[in-house]
């Protein structure tokens, strides 16, 4: 890759790392990443991937920016309230790094569109805020063989895992079915410390860059959990389930499922 003088300056702190170099930076520029959610997690993930120079960054989100988002969704601001989140984030990421092609996709993800949406991308990032989407994204990535960096946050706790279909575990190896809607925290319980998605999103962006560069050990077969109140990280091993309903040799789920009803969709 021939870098312009501006790119040399912008990416110099990457290029001087032995694990990155000019070749690694060129891989980052060639990478195509698609993110589900432009909210709490999607904002920091997209921010850092844009800063890193990821060539194509697609954002899927069907919501518009509201004032209540700004406590944690750092790509949006008072001037973009009312705009689609994907457009608001596109403005922010493009202003940070015009090298990055941001593709805003204002759609609700479903079993009917997800495989088409992720087809042209190398890596999928899940920063969604609900179980139906989390399971849908997992199943679609397993079926399409796409690496998935999944993150989740609630109150003061978050978790990250990296799913490499065919090699490591998948989300259903961990939890076979989504919890019944009644067990999902009610609206008042669903608070979140605003900085928490920054920590978890930062970890997700790190995983994405490691996958692009082919360096280090991704969180494959592992779940990393963070507790902000205790300032503690805990890593647990997640073995592949040989009887997993979606990623095993003989899966029982062979078509995508939309679990739609009964979940709170707090903004």
């Amino acid at each position: 890759m021939n870098f312009t003088d501006e790119q040399l300056q912008r990416y110099s702190r990457h290029i001087i790392l032995p694990e990155v170099g000019g070749r690694g930076q060129a891989k980052i520029a060639d990478a195509k990443v698609i993110m589900v959610g432009a909210g709490g997690l999607g904002c920091p993930v997209g921010f850092y991937l844009a800063a890193a120079g990821v060539g194509t960054l697609a954002l899927i989100d069907n919501d518009t920016v509201e004032l209540s988002n700004l406590q944690r969704q750092i790509a949006h601001n008072v001037h973009t309230i009312g705009l689609p989140k994907v457009e608001s984030a596109q403005k922010t990421f493009t202003a940070l790094n015009p090298d990055v092609k941001v593709v805003p996709l204002k759609v609700r993800i479903s079993k009917d569109n997800i495989l088409d949406l992720i087809r042209d991308y190398d890596i999928v990032v899940d920063g969604s805020d609900n179980f139906p989407t989390r399971y849908l994204v997992n199943d679609a990535c397993v079926m399409a063989g796409k690496p998935l960096v999944s993150g989740a946050i609630l109150r003061f706790e978050g978790q990250v895992t990296t799913i490499i279909p065919g090699k490591g575990h998948c989300y259903r190896c961990l939890f076979e079915e989504p919890p019944p809607p009644g067990l999902v925290p009610s609206c008042q319980e669903a608070g979140v410390l605003g900085v928490l998605p920054g920590v978890i999103g930062g970890l997700q962006a790190t995983e994405v860059l490691k996958l692009i560069l082919g360096k280090g050990e991704p969180l494959m077969g592992e779940l990393l959990m963070y507790n902000a109140l205790n300032s503690s990280f805990r890593k647990v091993r997640v073995p592949r389930n040989p009887a997993c309903p979606v990623c095993s040799e003989s899966p029982t789920i062979t078509e995508l499922v939309d679990y739609n009803e009964g979940y709170c969709t707090l903004q």
Partner: peptide
Amino acid sequence: CPYTFVKAKLAIES
């Protein structure tokens, strides 16, 4: 620095 090293490193890589 660091552009001196950046240029030298990119040259070596090629």
